[in-house]
Amino acid sequence: MRTAFKDVTLELAATDERLVLLFGDISVYLFREFTARYPERFFNAGICENTLVSMAAGMASQGLFPIVHTIAPFVTERSYEQIKDDVCYNGFGINIVTCGASFDYAWDGATHHCYTDLEILRLLPGMEVMQPGSKKEFCALLRSQYANGLPSYYRISHDEHGEDLPVSFGRGVVVRDAGAAVTVLTAGPILGNVLKAVAGLEANVVYFHTLKPLDTEVLRRFAHTKLLVVHDAFGLFEAVAAEVPGVRLWRHALPDQFNVYYGKLDDIRRAIGLDPEGIRAAVRRVQAEP
């Protein structure tokens, strides 16, 4: 997905000189074509996430469309106040594109895990929050949102869900409507595991690449069913609970602990029950609920 990020910014920069990149000393080699073509519009400011965000806000105040890019925990959890004050409160629209969220850096331990980003940013007024699950979704969302003057967060992942789904900002996607009594709600690349999990089971699947604004219309269509949120981050469950109160809602997501097992993404997902088998068991449990 990071290569797609490079490709789409090259494409957008060719026709929009207001697009500028501020990087926290990551992906710099990958973007060498961008730096060669647009040296004045690429700033590798170093490892200083708070300054990256505030400077991007200052640049946005002068009519530019900055994209800040670095590793998820450092620019969301560390720089939350800069995003709240300098970006959202001031109304200086910037784009933040992160990598390495959830357990993409499984082997690096808890300092490099990040599963709060979607939830904490969702709480900020005016913020758009996206978790694309494929290159196609990321490119479409960045193209449609980067220049709208609003603060926008895009979490890109190593993993992809492998599905070719329609993409429209703020719209959920009904991936599977089986007329079932249980609907699995999910977001981002974990959709791949969800679809493996529900093979042969009676379950609907609704997918979100946009967590804020959440598509409440599609949720209401399935509100009469038992809703099970399956997600390898915080944010979707909380958004559903807030946006469509009074539904029968279950959660199969992260335990209240640091998940430091090292290994790879799939190892951690397996350890905490977010592999296809663990998700399948969760769906069966909800099916058995009255």
Binding site: S54, A57, Q82
Partner: peptide, 8 residues
């Protein structure tokens, strides 16, 4: 930092 962004 915000002022530096403006200046940049």
């Amino acid at each position: 930092a915000v002022a530096a962004g403006m200046a940049l």
